[in-house]
Write a protein that binds this DNA or RNA. Structure first.
Lengths: 157, 157
DNA sequence: AAGTATTTTGAGAATCATTTTAAAAATCCT
DNA sequence: AGGATTTTTAAAATGATTCTCAAAATACTT
């Protein structure tokens, strides 16, 4: 945790940005909730516990900043608000680590699927089109085990 | 065009829904702009040409209905508004026809890539996880030919 | 440590896509 | 055509996100 915090401070300084409590706390909350998909409001509520004077606008600004610094990923689950999660790269090390999202149509829960496996499709697209692919976002919609079981229990009645 | 309109009327009747000018016109506009990615506002402006009394709320409702009837696809380009395009299935025939989107990070234009090629990844996910995949959405972000050329011309200066 | 330029913040207002409301109009069944 | 039901319109409401601007914090300089 502290390691990352020091790294973050360094990054901020390198960019000529100021180190503030708000920025440190937003990153900390995101780190503590690694793997979750948090709205600005979610983050706001959690930061407020330790630092009640923070404003929601600051959370929006910070999360935007973290996105530009590529420390967080943004996902849109089409439920009306954008979500953020701490980047997978911050811990691991070297290159960008992609993952996909599995979204349950019944309960709305979200899982990550760590294998990427799109390199082949990307290079196929580069061969077939004039488009240079830099990044991708893949969402799978379906049904989780729990909901599938609930549904079949429902039917058996 | 008329063929589809008759089919659409039939679908509406089957669902106990009423056939209205507004519904027919929204579908017609989407059909005439096949392959484009239109916002509710875009559709509204085009329907208004022939039918100025239409309200924006009706366009939102109709597009929602068309989505439920699986006659249109929804895409979110993360530019603040949801977009719709006429479904690829309505013309072709049988099964659901997937396609991906190529989004230029420089100019924002969007292209469709018709090959799907995700069956393998889907079945891999089904094997590896407890999640039953029903659908997916894949967006590629990158740079189109035009923007790549502009950029290298820029650099040459 | 104080002074100062610059950035950041908080609170509230503003924005903008989308949804809701309620009364009026259109559809469709007989 | 008559009447039950659905749909529409226009305007108001909503809700996430962004903007504004004065006040506070940060970081650099001496």
């Amino acid at each position: 945790m502290t390691l990352n915090q020091e790294a973050f401070k360094k990054i901020l300084k390198e960019q000529g940005l100021k180190v503030t409590n708000q920025r440190l706390l937003v990153l900390e909350v995101l780190e503590k909730h690694r793997g979750e998909h948090m709205t600005a409001e979610d983050i706001y509520e959690l930061v407020k516990v330790d630092y009640p004077e923070i404003g929601l606008a600051t959370v929006y600004r910070t999360v935007q900043l973290l996105l530009e610094l590529q420390l967080v990923d943004r996902i849109n689950l089409d439920d009306g608000c954008v979500r953020y999660e701490i980047g997978h790269l911050i811990e691991g090390g070297e290159g960008k680590h992609h993952h996909h999202h599995l979204i349950c149509k019944s309960c709305g829960k979200v899982w990550s699927f760590e294998d990427d496996l799109l390199e082949e499709l990307e290079s196929y697209i580069e061969r077939k089109t004039d488009f240079h692919v830099l990044d991708h976002e893949l969402k799978f919609y379906g049904q989780c085990k729990e909901c599938a079981e609930k549904e079949s229990a429902e039917k058996r009645k």
